[in-house]
């Protein structure tokens, strides 16, 4: 299956992997601080949230969609969980409420896309705005929600703890990777998702139930976003809902797409997200060690991403006769 997709021996995935490895070696050899185990773990920890969100984004893109609401879901549902816990609700129930909220948002996304046939990019954008608006107005008192309530220690351990010296967020990233990989590779719904992403009309004619599948797809995306939010919340002990309005979602898209998941759907998998996350992680970590200002980091990061895309386009040029219409 991979063989039919790869036109050149060097796919974008491999180019990005090579760049990531190259940068890793460069930092490894020149920066003593970079070499330390602690630093490598913190590298992983810093990008694990991004990586988890990237997995959700990858799922939506594979099914020929995009989920611009994933960051909003992350912020708003986790903020609500903290607020509920503060108001005295048992943490378990609060978590359940947050989970249901995120699933509901995912289903709204899916319904808009599947039943009302709104373009995914626009449906999820509107839902992101709506989700922020509804939760902020109706459910939250404040932009910034602190976790004030006494909660069981395991909650803090989600984001703050470590197992065998490895921070929990990293382990959780690995866990989500594994689960998503199993889903995409071995679950029937996962296989169908590729079919739908590759060619929705053909998938539908074949008998695949595109609409329920779309609902499932966006629900899973939202749940992944919620999970990332809870990890973040338990790490910092507060949720700043303004993150919903930030440009973070673009970083998430980049992580997913830079590793070689085609925006036109049906291609790629968990491995691509890991590679994309690795590149971003190495870059950000190395530059922070070099004390590169944040804005310069962004420039360097984007230029490297651009080079990767250009290299891919030169090695695997698009064919005018086979490229898909309306594919942006």
């Amino acid at each position: 299956m991979m063989a039919t997709r790869t036109r050149s021996p060097l796919s974008q995935e491999m180019i990005v992997a090579a760049i990531a490895a190259l940068l890793f070696m460069a930092f490894f050899l020149t920066q003593p601080v970079f070499r330390t185990t602690d630093n490598l773990l913190s590298l992983l920890q810093n990008v694990s949230i991004l990586g988890i969100l990237g997995l959700g984004m990858a799922l939506s893109i594979i099914g020929r969609g995009i989920d611009l609401s994933i960051v909003t879901v992350m912020a708003m549902s986790s903020a609500w969980v903290l607020q509920l816990a503060n108001s005295g609700l048992p943490l378990g129930l609060a978590l359940l409420a947050g989970l249901l909220l995120s699933i509901a948002v995912g289903l709204v996304n899916g319904a808009l896309i599947a039943f009302l046939e709104v373009p995914a990019i626009f449906a999820t954008l509107a839902v992101a705005t709506l989700n922020y608006g509804v939760v902020r107005t109706a459910l939250l008192d404040d932009n910034l929600v602190y976790l004030k309530a006494e909660v069981p220690g395991w909650f803090h351990a989600i984001g703050g703890g470590a197992l065998f010296g490895i921070p929990n967020p990293v382990l959780l990233f690995a866990l989500v990777c594994l689960l998503l990989h199993l889903f995409l590779r071995y679950d029937i719904a996962g296989r169908f998702l590729y079919a739908m992403g590759e060619n929705p009309a053909a998938a539908r004619i074949t008998g695949i139930a595109n609409r329920p599948l779309t609902l499932l797809q966006y629900a899973i995306c939202s749940v992944i976003g919620f999970g990332a939010g809870m990890i973040l919340a338990s790490t910092i002990g507060s949720v700043e809902t303004r993150i919903a309005r930030s440009t973070m979602v673009y970083d998430v898209i980049l992580v997913a797409v830079i590793g070689g998941i085609g925006l036109s759907g049906g291609k790629g998998g968990v491995r691509n997200v890991i590679i994309g996350t690795a590149l971003i992680g190495v870059l950000l970590n190395g530059m922070t060690i070099l004390n590169t200002p944040y804005t310069v980091q962004n420039i360097i990061k984007s230029v490297i991403l651009m080079l990767a895309i250009v290299a891919d386009s030169i090695l695997n040029p698009r064919d005018e006769q086979t490229s898909q219409q309306g594919d942006i």
Binding site: V33, T36, D38, N39, S42, L43, Q45, N46, L284, N285, T288, I289, N291, Y294
Partner: peptide, 8 residues
């Protein structure tokens, strides 16, 4: 940012 700064 702080996590990395602390490591560095």
């Amino acid at each position: 940012i702080a996590t990395t700064v602390l490591q560095a």
